[in-house]
Amino acid sequence: MSALLTVRGLDVALKTKKGARTLVSGVDFTLEPGGAMGILGESGSGKSLTCRAVMGLLGEGFTVSGRAEFQDRELLSLPPKAMRALCGREIAMIMQHPLTSFDPLCVIGDQMAETFRFHLETSREAAWEIARDALAAMRIADPGHILTLYPHQLSGGMLQRVMIGLTLTLRPALVIADEPTTALDSVTQFEIMKELVRIRESGRTSLIFISHDLGAMRMLVDTALVMHQGRQVEYGPAQAVFNRPQSDHARYLIETRNALTSRFLAYAGRRAGLDRERGCCRAAG
């Protein structure tokens, strides 16, 4: 089976008055159908930029070079209109900030329906029907009511689920989740992670998961790509990258995370021990 997405030598540069400034350079990866790849790196390392470049979502002023082959189509040379038609339908994106990702002046139903109307060429009524079904599939209670609400009337977690529902209804071949849990509280993060695992297990959709959260990434991905200051510093099977990182930066990221975890566990363990000595339960302390 041929690869779903092959990216070779992807460079992103921004034209400035002082000349072109390279923001991302030399990104190479291959995503198999049904595969899940994690892009790991600190803020500003070029994770989101790489994905937006692939989707053709960078504005004017950016130049993208290299190759990005998706289902035998070269994305970087696709005319803008054809690329846009691919967005949402074949390659979908789940955004980092659910609260600001919807037009604040439009009800949720309109924004979902307009997406379906464009991609599925249906009537307004049918598109609303599809939107209702999409929310119901996300096990959201009273979807008909949710559709008539404005974004500010919903919580971040709810909007994130709306976004996932909207994404999955169009059955894209590839979902790019750009730090989908960063802006959420930990309970909601867990809920959203469960949804992403569900997407992953459905097997129909490939996933690119952008995060700086190693724990979340371990749950989801089978390959990992580590970025640092716009460069790809490590790429390989997830287990190998996480357990035996080769590059200095990947090792640094992973060791920091492991150190934090062990310190947390040590602290929690000591706490538990103390509580046991005092003969009280942890919940009361």
Binding site: R52, M55, L57, R84, A85, L86, C87, G88, R89, A92, M93, M95, Q96, H97, T100, S101, F102, D103, P104, Q111, E114, T115, F118, H119, M163, L166
Partner: peptide
């Protein structure tokens, strides 16, 4: 961000 998302949705 909502403009980016509108484009990402393929509008």
């Amino acid at each position: 961000p909502f403009v980016l998302y509108a484009r990402a949705r393929g509008l």
